[in-house]
Each structure stands twice: as C-alpha cells, then as structure tokens.
Design a protein around this nucleic acid. Sequence first.
DNA 1: ATAGCGCCCTGGTGGC
DNA 2: TGCCACCAGGGCGCTA
Length: 307
Amino acid sequence: MPELPEVETVRRTLAPDLIGRRIEYATVASPDVVGRPPGDPAGFAAAVEGRRVEALGRRGKYLLLRLSGGVVMVVHLRMTGRLWICPAGAPAELHTHARLALDDGRELRFRDVRRFGRLYLYHVSELGALLDEAGLEGAPHAAAAAGGGLPVAGPLEPPGLFELGPEPFDPSCEESLARALARRRAPVKALLLDQRVIAGLGNIYADEALHAAGIHPRTPAGLLTTGDAGRLCAAAREVLRRAIDNRGTTLRDYVDGRGVPGEMRSYLRVYGREGEPCLACGEPVRRERVAGRSSFYCPRCQPPPRP
DNA sequence: ATAGCGCCCTGGTGGC
DNA sequence: TGCCACCAGGGCGCTA
C-alpha cells in the first residue's frame, strides 16, 4: 500500500535512472487509469512522447514527474500500483497499463492489478504552489508559456491533489493537526487518514504512529490536547523516517523504482500483528475496525477511550 | 459542516 | 479438490 515512504522511495530510486531520459514513445492501454485527460490514453501518450524527464518530486502520496515543455505527469499508486524501470524487452506482466519507452533502451512501466491508480497530466501553470511543495523548483520555463501542447485543460482533477494538508515533516504539521482535532467527534485515526489534515499517512503508518504516541485509534479527536497533537506528529515523523530508511513496506505488490521490495515490514510494531505480543509491553496486539479500516493497536500501550 | 458508509477492482485466503 | 464468500484499503461521492 504505497504511502508516503513508499512513494518517496519510488521517487528516489527512479530519479537517477529517469532524469535526463527522453520518452521516445508511449503505450497506454487502459482508459481507466488515465485521470487526465480523462479516459484518453491516446491523448496522454501523445502528450508525453518526445519529452525529457527533468525532475521528480513528491507531495503526499502523489509522485510528480516534470517533463520538458512545462508538462507535469502526476502518478498516484493507490493500493496496488507499481511504477518501475525495466529493460524494454522484459515480458510485460498482466495488468501493465502504461509503458513509456526511454532513449536508453529501457521502459518506465505502470502496473496496477486493481486499476485504482491514476496517471494525470498538467501544465506547470496549473499546479501553482504544488510544484515548490513537491520539491520541483518552479524555475520559469521558457518553452512552457504556450501550454506545452497539452490536448485538454479540463477540471483540476483529482480535487484531493489540490487540497493536501502539510507534509508530516513540515513544521506546520502540528498546528494543522491540532486545529483539525479540536471539537471533533470522529476517531483520531479518521483524521490521520484525511489527506487534507496531514498528507501522506495511510492505514499502516497511521496505526504505527498512534502506537508510538500511545493513543488509541478510536479516541474521539476532540478529547486530545495540543500536546497530544504534538506527540502524534513527532511519532508520525519518526515512523515515516524509519520507513523511508527501510525503503518502505512491501505486503504484496509494492516495489521501488527498480523493482525491489521494501524492508520495513519486519519493523512494523503493530500493523498486521494481531495476537502477537506488543514489542513494547508484551500484551497481545488487537485488531478492530475503526473509520472503516482494519486497525491494530496495543490495549495496554494505547488505552481505549472511556465510553 | 460532519461522520459514516458504499463503491471501485482483482487476487489471495479460509471455510466447508 | 472445488467452490465461494470475504477481505484488503485510498479516495471520492453520497446520505442523513
């Protein structure tokens, strides 16, 4: 389940092989995965062909590829998406939806068994602050003024991309979380998963962060203090940092930009460990459905809220 | 405004 | 062994 650490790992592992490469031609097979221009794989392919990859950035769980001519390709892997580079001759796996042939005899491939993942195209002028936030320095693009030859404008889908909360490593994270928690009845976990509050946490790292902070996932957000919000942010940072250091969590599908699985799974302290002893206190880890998601926690380290 | 739920989609799993 | 209900969960749209 690509969350922030997995997307960041994909970015880091793709960058050295991708930056400076020219996309010779593109094959996009499934209309489903083309979010913009909506359902137009041919238009998408035509719009990226001939462009060079200039830089790779990330914002939340979105990966951004800045292409020459002021075009930005945005990728969201959702649940089972994979984006990696392989030799052009490698047999295409089932559910390969896009293949971008590079000028060095290799291919950038997008595969997604469940077709939840999406590819989007934008012109730099549409992205505004997002470029800087994603670490793509928005140096003026001389050749980009005209619109980059993109076939469509259309609405700025997905809306989520333009409503992202602060990155967990951004100093404004504490304030955003504290503000979101105040007077809310929803379980704290629901807000951690809300990308408008903090960008980049998913089910795995939300559980890990709550455990590290000693907060039960079902705790009504409004019961938490500003101090709790601070501890939660600090816990999230530590968990995410560690996950990035270990190149992400591979449960089944996830691989990095070179096709290599991540190592973080062995270091998860609660996620996926129902019935096993808490690594902090030995109490068996429990699993419960919170905010529509399966949630793992230690009943001793994370005392349940009093009903 | 907010909270909760169903939907999308496929493959793996576990029960019988 | 085969069959099938069920589960995984990110984001979004709908409802009350």
